[in-house]
Design a protein around this nucleic acid. Structure first.
Length: 169
DNA sequence: AGATTGATAAGG
DNA sequence: CTTATCAATCTT
């Protein structure tokens, strides 16, 4: 069953954990790929110096300020698309970065494998025919927490936050 | 450890 | 316009 707008309106801190084990679905050339989410990270509000929105609203980050349920796809290092789920209420920027799915470990690799690129930016996950997330009602997987990755520019305090969630095999 | 790669944001 | 920077990955 596809996740609803109501689900996406929850906090990124909640959803980063809850999205583990959910199924990311992408349609490409009439083929639909469905893969379980195995690793996520939470990015929360302008006060989180690791979050793209921490300097305020810009052309790139304005998507983060929208209501939960949108896709935020960002081209990193000129080569890799990173896929995020925008969550929470409007005007409170927050998102969950999907860092890994079953079989593809790493945010750049999963986006490449599933054909996710910036064309999916701002897609509505509750209505799009090309990208959405499903819940199969399975038992929640066990997971562990860890520090976030690749945010050396953030404040020391924010680097220490355990906002990365990884499914235990 | 180093190369790669181009959009983005900030500054002149 | 110019420049520094980057939620990464692959190869050495």
């Amino acid at each position: 069953m596809r996740l609803t707008e109501e689900y996406y309106l929850q906090s990124a801190k909640v959803l980063a954990k809850d999205l583990l084990g959910k199924v990311l679905c992408v349609r490409n050339n009439k083929e639909i790929m469905k893969l379980r989410i195995t690793e996520t990270e939470c990015y929360f509000s302008e006060s989180d110096t690791a979050c793209h929105a921490h300097k305020g609203k810009t052309e790139r980050t304005k998507i983060l300020y929208k209501k939960g349920g949108r896709a935020y796809v960002y081209l990193c290092y000129g080569m890799y698309n990173l896929f995020n789920v925008v969550t929470g209420e409007e005007d409170l920027p927050q998102a969950v970065l999907i860092r890994g799915v079953e079989g593809y470990d790493g945010p750049g690799k999963l986006a490449k494998a599933m054909g996710i690129d910036r064309r999916f930016n701002d897609a509505d996950l509750t209505t799009s025919e090309d990208i959405w997330i499903e819940d199969w009602g399975e038992k929640k997987p066990k997971f562990k927490r860890d520090k976030r990755v690749g945010i050396g520019y953030a404040s020391e305090k924010d680097q220490e936050r355990l906002w990365r969630y990884i499914v235990i095999e």
